[in-house]
């Protein structure tokens, strides 16, 4: 996590706090639909390409309806891409079996499955990012807890998230101080590193102690209380029902294929 990461978390939270029809939906609805979406996309066989394309409707629609800038999601998509790209690139190298001839072309199966990996990647990652950008971390955690996430873990996520900025700021100040005193911007030796990060650790632990005192001072007794319980509304049911139906439809029928055949003029 670098400086840019810290800034990205910040922007994500700002988007999470927007107001839009998508933001007003219950976190549970969005979480479940997102999981259904990802599972459906993952369930396609490895050479599938065209049937995956209709699924782009989901992230596109969510981004459009929520007011989250598409460029933000796209940028994060590109940043996260290398791993899937690297592993995926082996497919064209290893799977050279030609799978079809079209006008004299033989295409290696590996290229198809590589393309499929890229589509899957773009779909699943954009859906996951959109979920958070349309919900915000605190509402998402509360929603997940109502879906059965253990309370210890929900509280852990919120605390972690709350103190990322605080501790990252301390780390940044330390790094800046180090850079000012080291020549040529070289990284410190393990020994210096140990004392630097060790200090950071001790300060973090001291802070945890102080937070604990502050919690006790306001009656903390081991339980994290929550305010209003949210309700599922009509739009939630419509949202979930509509999208799930679409996923089933697009999974069973290759919509793109049908459209393509219709347009390439071949009649039954």
């Amino acid at each position: 996590m670098g400086v840019s990461h810290s800034a990205a978390v910040h922007r994500m939270e700002i988007f999470g706090g927007l107001d839009s029809p998508m933001h007003r939906l219950d976190a549970r609805t969005k979480a479940l639909v997102t999981v259904a979406f990802i599972a459906t996309v993952m369930s396609f066989p490895r050479y599938e390409l065209s049937a995956l394309t209709p699924f782009f409707l989901y992230p596109f629609a969510l981004v459009a309806l929520s007011g989250v800038p598409p460029g933000f999601i796209l940028k994060k998509l590109l940043i996260a891409a290398p791993f899937a790209l690297c592993i995926g690139l082996f497919n064209p190298l290893l799977d050279r079996q030609p799978v079809f001839l079209a006008g004299g072309f033989a295409v290696a199966g590996g290229w198809l499955s590589f393309g499929s990996i890229l589509l899957r990647f773009a779909l699943t990652v954009s859906a996951a990012l959109t979920l958070l950008a349309c919900t915000g971390m605190s509402r998402l955690c509360a929603g997940l807890e109502r879906l059965g996430l253990p309370k210890v873990l929900a509280v852990q996520l919120l605390f972690l998230y709350r103190y990322i900025f605080v501790i990252a700021d301390e780390a940044l100040r330390m790094r800046r101080g180090l850079e000012l005193r080291s020549s040529g911007g070289r990284s410190p030796s393990p020994r210096v590193y140990g004392s630097l990060v060790g200090h950071l650790l001790l300060r973090a632990m001291d802070r945890a102690q102080r937070i604990y005192s502050a919690m006790l001072a306001r009656g903390f007794n081991g339980d994290m209380p929550t305010l209003q319980p949210a309700r599922l509304h009509g739009p939630d049911i419509a949202f979930a029902g509509g999208w799930l139906a679409f996923f089933v439809l697009a999974r069973c029928w290759n919509l793109a294929d049908h459209l393509g055949r219709l347009l390439t003029g071949v009649r039954p």
Binding site: Q156, V166, A171, P190
Partner: peptide, 28 residues
Amino acid sequence: ALDDRLVPMMGVLGAFIFAAQMINFSIP
């Protein structure tokens, strides 16, 4: 086992892991 001290401690140490990853060291 709680000891509710662990509640903030675990959270802050998670944040510490993120922050510590901002600092590199040179491998001898």
